[in-house]
């Protein structure tokens, strides 16, 4: 089984992405702090089983609150096989520092630009290919509330496991 942790700042859509991936339901709101503990759900992609973990929001590896400590513990002690760093595409510059920290752990990291619709609405254009090339990690775009891009994410998750075990 492959362990996947959804991590990122508060209020970027981790829970709604979790709901879309697992078809389970965890509460989703438009304010930080809705998730205070870990929710887990199992899914099958093609022939492989994945455990998806929804985590409370965290800003960096230096936690201030208990909820951030919970998330860090997942990364540090459960050694997930894949980390999906979910970020609000509008606030790329504030959220990428955590991506760098996640990459330092040498775990597999996928950068997930979420809420891409709102970014496009204000006229932002993001060059995903360039980000991918510079960071050397997969970068994908999603709109988790509407389920857009979830299939791409599933494909990437599957792809990473085949590389991983090869």
């Amino acid at each position: 089984m492959t362990k996947v942790a959804l991590v990122g700042s508060p209020n970027v859509g981790k829970s709604s992405l979790f709901n879309q991936l697992t078809k389970l339901y965890v509460s989703v709101s438009n304010y930080p702090g809705t998730t205070v503990s870990i929710t887990r759900g199992k899914i099958t992609i093609k022939d492989k089983i994945f455990e998806i973990m929804d985590t409370p929001g965290m800003y960096s590896f230096l936690p201030v609150t208990d909820e951030e400590k919970v998330s860090r513990k997942i990364i540090f002690e459960e050694s997930p096989d894949i980390i999906v760093h979910v970020i609000d595409a509008k606030n790329l510059e504030r959220m990428l520092p955590l991506t760098l920290q996640l990459m330092e752990t040498k775990l597999n990291v996928i950068l997930n630009l979420n809420i891409i619709d709102e970014a496009e609405k204000i006229g932002m254009i993001i060059n995903t290919d360039l980000l991918e090339k510079e960071l050397h990690i997969p970068v994908i775009q999603t709109v988790s509330t509407k389920g857009i891009g979830v299939l791409t994410l599933k494909d990437k998750l599957y792809e990473l496991t085949t590389h991983h075990h090869a």
Partner: peptide, 29 residues
Amino acid sequence: LRYVISMNRQKTVDVLVSQSVTVPKSSSF
């Protein structure tokens, strides 16, 4: 060092973002 390291990161991120993201001058907010 906490501050220095996070400034290092932010600088890298700012460069990366300026290369890969175009933001319109006026937003419709």
